[in-house]
């Protein structure tokens, strides 16, 4: 049951990203990468290699749609790799209820915010520097990371608020 939901969410978030969010044009080239929400929202007890493999295919699919070589693949795999370490740093240990997913309820507002912020920054950093392929426009790229990252963070927090409502009521 849970797997089907996950699969559905996987494709829904890819379509949301490539059909709607990639057409958002907000001065300069700012592009929210909301698909990272899929990796952020996976359960705490997801197996390491499952996590990496899902991130890999998520990034690959986004790349296929965007003609962007494999830069989304690389940055999403990096995000998945960093996730367990960031979680451990923020929560100290694995949460008791192993089947839970990161949410306002399980992590708390502040921790969830920092968790998303750090991982989104890692992802965008890899993504935008790979897109440039050189460090010449360093400040400009940092600017893009910050602005796009902020926008992604906003969408991701909204996403957390929407997705977690049914489970928190139970």
């Amino acid at each position: 049951m849970f797997r089907w939901k996950l699969l559905l969410m996987f494709f829904a978030i890819v379509l949301l990203q490539v059909l709607i969010l990639n057409n958002v044009y907000l001065g300069g080239y700012i592009n929210p990468q909301v698909y990272v929400l899929f990796v952020l929202i996976l359960p705490f007890d997801v197996r390491g290699w499952h996590l990496l493999l899902m991130a890999f295919f998520l990034g690959l699919l986004i790349d296929v749609f965007e003609d962007s070589l494999a830069i989304h693949t690389a940055s999403t795999v990096m995000l998945a790799f960093a996730r367990p370490f960031v979680l451990k740093l923020l929560t100290g240990k694995q949460p008791d209820d192993a089947g839970d997913v990161p949410s306002f309820r399980t992590l708390g507002t502040m921790t969830l915010f920092v968790y998303s912020l750090v991982l989104i920054l890692i992802h965008h950093m890899v993504l935008f520097f790979m897109e440039m392929f050189h460090f010449r426009d360093f400040t400009e790229t940092i600017f893009r990371v910050v602005i796009s990252g902020g926008l992604t963070l906003l969408f991701v927090i909204i996403g957390f608020a929407l997705f977690n409502r049914p489970t928190s009521k139970r």
Partner: peptide
């Protein structure tokens, strides 16, 4: 294994980027 699997996938991604 988590680290090695990460390394493997990342190398695949970089190879895809550079080759294409």
């Amino acid at each position: 294994h988590f680290f090695f699997f990460f390394l493997l996938l990342q190398v695949v991604a970089l190879l895809l980027t550079l080759s294409s």
